[in-house]
């Protein structure tokens, strides 16, 4: 099958998933309300407690990129849970009896989750602006930061697609992925500066790609306060490159793995 056909089929599947965002109340809440809640909670609860120089406002600005990163990564669990849901229902039998590209089912799902993440980022960005976050670089840089967040989240959604195909129910997918995602997004520079972490955790956090994507977004948004010491770890010195490397490796491993698991799980 030719690549344009695969993309066309994936677009049809993605459209189906996007229609669902409107019609499934859970998804709509997940997509719009929880990002607002995250921004508000983290800014005011943590923002007040962990006060860096210059009062809560500076810390709020520091936090935003971390909240963005955490939220879009958590958003990837939608990929896995939705696929597990499809697997339970008969709809995949319908898809599999049609002359569409088999890979379009997973590709379409990951596409629609990018759309989902764009909505999430817009909602969070607006909420951020309300609580005092500002882009202090150029719009172009800020867009690059958003792009990097989307690319990294896209890669993660293929890991979730694989889990969704592997695990028998949407609930299990959610639990399984939270067990992985919580430590990854918290043992990082998302919510606290790395120098506050104890030794071994700090090293882990420095090499954690969640830190690098957060660092990259922070830099590109111009949200690193002047006078902050430069990072010492290589990944954080080159956060864009390191993030893209991780994204590429994840995609190279998990796109084939998820598609193989799709074939196994659907043909029994």
């Amino acid at each position: 099958m030719r690549v344009p056909d695969v993309l066309a089929d994936a677009a049809v599947v993605a459209k189906r998933n996007i229609i669902k965002i409107k019609r499934v109340p859970d998804l709509l809440v997940f997509t719009t309300l929880s990002p607002i809640m995250f921004v508000l909670l983290f800014s005011y609860v943590f923002g007040g407690a962990i006060d860096r120089e210059g009062g809560g406002a500076a810390y709020r600005e520091f936090l935003i990129a971390g909240i963005f990163a955490q939220t879009v990564i958590f958003g990837a669990t939608v990929t896995g849970a939705a696929l597990a849901e499809d697997l339970k229902k008969g709809i995949l039998d319908r898809f599999r009896s049609l002359p569409m590209a088999p890979s379009a089912v997973l590709t379409g799902r990951t596409f629609s989750d990018v759309v989902n993440n764009v909505i999430v980022l817009v909602v969070m960005g607006l909420t951020g602006l309300v609580v005092g976050w500002r882009i202090r670089s150029s719009w172009l840089d800020a867009l690059a930061g958003v792009g990097l967040l989307l690319v990294f989240a896209y890669a993660i959604s293929w890991i979730m697609a694989w889990i969704g195909m592997l695990v028998p129910s949407p609930e299990v997918v959610n639990n399984a992925s939270f067990v992985v995602i919580f430590p990854l997004t918290f043992v990082a520079n998302t919510f606290v500066p790395l120098d506050t972490l104890p030794g071994p955790l700090q090293t882990f956090a420095e090499w954690n790609p969640v830190s690098s994507v957060t660092q990259a977004a922070r830099e590109l948004f111009g949200n690193i306060p002047p006078g902050t010491p430069a990072p010492t770890a290589w990944p954080l010195q080159h956060p864009e490159v390191y993030t893209l490397l991780w994204s590429a490796v994840i995609l190279l491993v998990f796109v084939p793995l998820a598609n193989a698991q799709y074939r196994v799980s659907t043909s029994r």
Binding site: V12, G90, L98
Partner: peptide, 29 residues
């Protein structure tokens, strides 16, 4: 070359009837 209607209806419950059939048409190209 085939059309299938399985034992358990394989329709997407959140799409309308029209959207379901339209989607199938597009996936038949």
């Amino acid at each position: 070359r085939i059309g299938l209607s399985g034992q358990y209806a394989a329709v997407d419950e959140y799409l309308t009837g029209y959207e379901n059939l339209d989607m199938i048409g597009r996936l038949y190209h």
